[in-house]
Design a protein around this nucleic acid. Structure first.
Lengths: 203, 203
DNA sequence: TACTACCGACCGACTGGTCAGTCGGTTTTG
DNA sequence: CAAAACCGACTGACCAGTCGGTCGGTAGTA
């Protein structure tokens, strides 16, 4: 294996370990040594790849949220209808979190209370997601599919509803199958925007 | 002032200072000495009233959320109609947060990422609020005002939407007048439950 | 009233442990 | 060999919690 490849895989190992340990113990309560041990490397190795503990956490946040965002955009790409696209986005977030508990914990729990610097980064991420939804709503308004409204605001409310539902699942484990709640939530949210009489033609 | 009175006011001074300092710097980043200084007392004094830093934070959480809950319940007490009562509850949460930024920051930001032990306490608090809403919805269903649905689930989604809206306001300061978004949010949420054709008779 | 004995509230210097970040040395690769 | 990657002992700062001590008030006594 070349040096660059080795280095890259090292870096990835570190991020993976950081994900596990940070989400298990929380940012503040996690010593760098734990990450070094969990990644089967060393403290010096961590500091070779990342300038500080904070930078490591930030990189982890960045990497994770970008991956999620890509997944969501991919899911949306297939749908021509704006409302369908919105639904697809929401569903993608849902299923991703359901599959990756740690990701959910990282983005929704740990990042929130880890300090001022992280809050800003986290909020930016939330806004990126909200923007995707808002754009769908905008298009739907333009197309006359739904009545005009403050789409950014509605998008954030949606997103908040999703987050809190996932959060509840994270903390209590209920419902055991997170994805089963998706249709419930989708209907609740969509009706709020399109009105009951036009509700999704679906089960 | 009697000894007991003095002691009680001392304790309150400590909680007030803790509120200020914790919400400013975050739980982990706040040394007890800072709270001692901010309350114009001493480290020993803090540990006389609270067995540990964690216990102090927990007491603060408990006290704050209980106060908020009482306010909400008081607001609900006046309304005979279940849907009105739900609206009143939501509005009370909204206005309380708008008036007390620090309270919002404590309950929605700091408590979230301060560690496992706190998450449980926080979740319990969220559930208490969600229960209030769910009970309104249940009554409304029984009265035939709205179609049957998983009311606990809907209540949590509502609550999440509110939280995220407040959170966004906290972090960005937009909109400058938080309470102005209440009608917007209320309509969005209520329509999701009652359907558009029955929407609140109001502006 | 005056004097004393006592006690709960409070103080802050100190301790023991922890941990982010450093640095001189070692290994691996090209 | 040179350079990049990596290691882990070490340092300095920081901080939760402790503990011996002070002080103001209160109760008991005469």
């Amino acid at each position: 294996m070349s040096v660059q490849e080795r280095s890259k895989s090292r870096r990835q190992r570190l991020l993976d370990a950081a994900m596990t340990v940070f989400t298990d113990q929380g940012y503040a309560a996690t010593p760098i040594d734990d990450i070094a041990r969990a990644s089967d490397t060393s403290k010096g190795g961590v500091y070779f790849h990342f300038p500080s503990k904070q930078a490591l956490f930030l990189a982890l946040l960045e990497e994770s949220s970008s991956a999620l965002l890509e997944k969501v955009e991919a899911a949306m790409a297939g749908e021509p209808d704006p409302l369908m696209r919105g639904e697809a986005a929401l569903r993608a977030v849902f299923t991703s979190f359901a599959e990756h508990r740690l990701l959910a914990r990282l983005l929704l729990v740990e990042a929130a209370g880890a300090g001022r610097d992280f809050n800003r980064a986290l909020m930016e991420m939330h806004e990126r997601f909200a923007t995707l939804i808002a754009e769908c709503l905008d298009e739907a308004v333009t197309a006359g599919r739904i009545a005009p409204l403050d789409t950014r605001f509605a998008a954030r409310a949606w997103y908040g509803a999703v987050n809190h539902t996932v959060l509840h699942w994270l903390q209590t484990g209920e419902p055991s199958d997170l994805e089963s709640t998706f249709p419930l939530l989708r209907d609740l949210l969509l009706v709020g925007v399109v009105g009951r009489e036009k509700t999704w033609a679906r089960s």
